[in-house]
Nucleic acid binder design. Structure first.
Length: 419
RNA sequence: GGAGAGGUGGCAGAGUGGUUGAAUGCGGCGGUCUUGAAAACCGUUGAGGGCUUUGUCCUCCGGGGGUUCGAAUCCCUCCCUCUCCGCCA
């Protein structure tokens, strides 16, 4: 949610933002709607004030005076009811419109149309050499019996997988490895609910813009989360956090669900794009003054995790046309995938400044100063995609997969997956 | 799923139709006293929103709807919490 006062005073800022993001919003129309709305509020409140005024006198009056006043109030009520329902409609359409407005981007975000305009910030490590043609993780998965897509399709349809045998161990090894790093860095671990109310989806900014990406339950008004960013962010909704306690850092392990509507035929097969995957997500509630430092800390934490796995990757500074509505800035971490000979996104890290905090009413108090906290989130480990990266990068010419050094202990000493 | 109880300010807890945005207590903040602290005493203490913005008005007693000139208080409905029973990982 944007700051309405700022919006009224300075609509140009939002016009500029909408243009940068390549969005189509008629701001002048919404400004006019807001004016109309406020005029009506004024009118309605005037009538209510009159009503309250007379109601205070009525008990003291008697006889004819009293009857006169009661009659006047009856009439006033008729007009008031009409105006109130008119106002309700206006409010609804105004807030529907305003809730599609994007956050304001940070000055360091490159302006661009789509993913082609994202800017590579830097690379870490180097492209690994293979003296054979590396296989896809999907192929390796079948050969080694550690991924079963066929049976998953039989049961649940496409874009579902079974992890099997060593891959199951690898998943939990990764989780242990990551939680260890995160607890050293002061993150409080959580296992959150994966079904949430509409407010949580709306408050985090996934609704209304991306609503078609998420599963909804039929009997109850609950939604399956696409990321634990949702319950993490909503965790402190309607709370005021005192400044000494900031930043509050959390890490949640959960399953995530995405409909992947509109991505038909894209990245079919394997672990890359599936309807259900497990992920550890980091989340920070931050003091606005430290927001951008905390954000770099978050990015650094993510990189420590990926570096420790020995993966080659690059950090992308995502452009205005490619970042999410709530994001003020976003980095993607793209790991090298040998079979595709390309970098693919395995994590992303965004600062949403006060966009979510406004919607979920998450405040801070710093002495006399009050305001909305800043919220930011980052993938710590998207298990499926990281397993994919490990399988492809750590394969040998025989189709075996070595275990990254830092995971061996968590794998009970296992050093290689082979048949 | 069945039976019962209940949802009021940061918390506890009054209030059953008319200056009740809400008594009282605790907590918080400020002050007096004290070498300091505690105790005691005095004062203060919700949020959101409109406008002609150091003021004024409006809204908010779980959500929604209704009755009434007037609702925290009456009616309907939904939700949630607690206790007991049943079922269950």
């Amino acid at each position: 949610m944007i700051d309405l006062e700022k919006f009224r005073k300075n609509p140009e800022v939002y016009k500029e933002e909408v243009k940068k993001r390549n969005m189509d919003i008629d701001i002048d129309e919404d400004i006019a709607l807001d004016e109309k709305r406020r005029k009506l509020i004024f009118k309605v409140e005037k009538m209510r004030a009159r009503k309250n005024e007379v109601s205070a006198i009525i008990p003291k009056a008697s006889g004819e005076d009293k009857q006169k006043m009661i009659t006047e109030m009856k009439e006033l009520n008729l007009g008031l009811k009409d105006l109130e329902s008119e106002l309700e409609l206006l409010e609804k359409s105004f807030f529907e419109k305003i809730s599609t407005y994007p956050n304001l981007t940070h000055e360091s975000v490159p302006v661009g149309k789509d993913e082609n305009d994202n800017i590579m910030a830097y690379k870490v490590g180097r492209v690994p050499d293979f003296d054979f043609i590396p296989k896809s993780h999907s192929e390796l998965g079948v050969m080694l019996g550690i991924i079963d897509e066929e049976r998953a399709a039989k049961i649940s349809g496409s874009r579902f997988v079974f992890l099997k045998n060593e891959n199951v161990m690898l998943q939990f090894a990764l989780v242990q490895y990551v939680l260890n790093i995160l607890s050293k860095r002061g993150f409080i671990p959580l296992v959150p609910p994966v079904l949430v109310k509409e407010r949580a989806m709306y408050g985090t900014g996934f609704f209304p813009v991306e609503a078609s990406q998420y599963y909804k339950t039929e009997l109850d008004d609950l939604y399956l989360i696409g990321t634990s960013e949702v319950p993490l962010c909503a965790y402190h909704s309607d709370e005021t956090i005192s400044a000494e306690k900031l930043p509050q850092k959390y890490a949640a392990y959960s399953t995530c669900f995405r409909r992947e509507a509109g991505s038909y035929g894209k990245d079919l097969g394997g672990l890359f794009r599936v309807h259900q995957f497990d992920k550890i997500e980091m989340f920070i509630f931050s003091h606005p003054e430290n927001s951008w430092d905390d954000f770099e800390f978050l990015r650094d934490t993510l990189e420590e995790i990926v570096k420790g796995l020995g993966l080659h990757y690059r950090i992308m500074n995502m452009c205005t046309g490619d970042i999410g509505t709530p994001n003020a800035k976003k980095y993607d971490l793209e790991a090298w995938m040998p079979a595709q000979k390309n970098y693919r996104e395995i994590a992303s890290c965004s600062n949403d400044t006060e966009f979510q905090a406004r919607r979920l009413n998450i405040r801070f108090k710093d002495g006399e100063r009050k305001g909305f906290v800043h919220t930011m989130n980052s993938t710590a480990c998207a298990v499926g995609r990281v397993i994919m990266a490990i399988m492809e990068n750590y394969q040998d010419r025989y189709g075996n997969i070595r275990i990254p050094q830092n995971l061996i202990a968590y794998m009970g000493g296992m050093e290689i997956i082979k048949r």
